[in-house]
């Protein structure tokens, strides 16, 4: 009886695997770092990194939910950061943030329209846009960086947009919590969310039920672009500068966080809290390597191993839960 209840719980909540992994890692890192990892300052830093990576991950998770993939988010992140900094200095941070997220929406629409109209695999199109917008970011900065001097970053707008801390946590983290709450409601409680998961589960069946498959996919790409650019905005607001390489390889971390969080790359099964927990785990691992003096190059290797084992573990858990 208890076993069947656990199976039902695992079937319905794909994030259970990552929750267990997170708790184990927190315990392990706390016990083995002699207080260097589990302290208020370091946890605050981890949550700040989780905020930007997590927002990007939420968007990627939605796209994965439709059965597609967006690997251009790292470049969208960079473009968002550059547009924000350029206009924040010259006009206003809030206006700059709106422009940056608008640019993210346009990049998402560019990807989504090309993918749905031409039926080209999303991996190919977003690989192209990853390079196009990275090239644009490098060309725009021309080897230099965009920046806002520290003394100019003291207004409320900067603070709200990730420029400072509130209750010891970077304000970007509150944006992540808000974004997660809004998207969770949209995904689980609205017709749009029902249709998005249906498209990922079986596009042909969704189409036969009258779902506008292309529109749903396009909307997921647009939301993904907006979130990636907004994450770039928060990061730029925190750092005060950005160059052409900002956000490079973050797309891989976002996809890894989704896989860790129980999102099935084939589509239809995603967990937004799981994806955010995945981002938290990656940020925690990165931080652990730094505080224990391990060279950061090992992070990519470790990232790969974690993704492979998480994917295998998730698959095993799901098979077990489906067994009668």
């Amino acid at each position: 009886m208890l076993k069947s209840e656990i199976k039902r719980l695992v079937r319905r909540h794909t994030e259970i695997g990552i929750l267990v992994i997170s708790l184990c890692l927190v315990l392990l890192f706390t016990l083995t770092s002699e207080g260097r990892w589990a302290n208020a300052y370091n946890i605050g830093t981890i949550l700040q990194v989780t905020a930007t990576l997590g927002l990007m991950t939420l968007g990627v998770a939605l796209v994965i939910g439709t059965g597609e993939i967006d690997i251009s988010v790292g470049s969208t992140f960079g473009i968002g950061a550059l547009i924000y900094l350029w206009f924040a200095v010259r006009i206003d941070p809030v206006f700059a943030a709106l422009l940056a997220t608008g640019a993210g929406a346009l990049i998402g629409a560019f990807n989504g329209i090309l993918i749905t109209r031409t039926k080209t695999p999303s991996l190919i199109i977003t690989l192209g846009s990853l390079m196009i917008f990275r090239g644009l970011a490098i060309a725009l900065t021309d080897g230099f960086s965009f920046s806002v001097p520290y003394k100019e970053r003291d207004g409320l707008s900067y603070s709200v947009l990730g420029g400072t801390e509130f209750l010891g946590i970077n304000t970007g983290f509150y944006w992540l919590v808000a974004g997660l709450a809004v998207l969770l409601i949209a995904l689980k409680m609205t017709p749009w969310g029902n249709r998005l998961l249906a498209v990922g589960g079986s596009a042909a069946s969704a189409h036969s039920r009258g779902v506008r498959v292309e529109r749903i996919k396009l909307s997921a790409f647009v939301v993904c672009g907006v979130l990636a650019a907004f994450a770039g905005t928060l990061e730029a607001s925190k750092l005060g500068f950005a160059d052409g390489s900002m956000g490079r390889l973050m797309e891989l971390q976002a996809i890894a966080a989704c896989v860790l969080g129980g999102c099935v790359l084939a589509g239809g099964r995603i967990s937004l809290p799981g994806a955010v927990l995945g981002a938290f785990v990656l940020s925690s691992v990165q931080s652990y390597l730094v505080v224990t003096g391990v060279r950061p190059q090992w992070f990519i290797l470790l990232l790969g191993l974690i993704v492979v084992f998480a994917a295998l573990g998730d698959r095993t858990l799901r098979r077990w839960s489906l067994k009668n």
């Binding site: 998961l197 249906a198 589960g201 079986s202 042909a204 239809g268 099964r269």
Partner: peptide
């Protein structure tokens, strides 16, 4: 229909 109409994940 025989082959389509239901999404296994929902």
């Amino acid at each position: 229909q025989q082959s389509v109409g239901l999404c296994d994940n929902l």
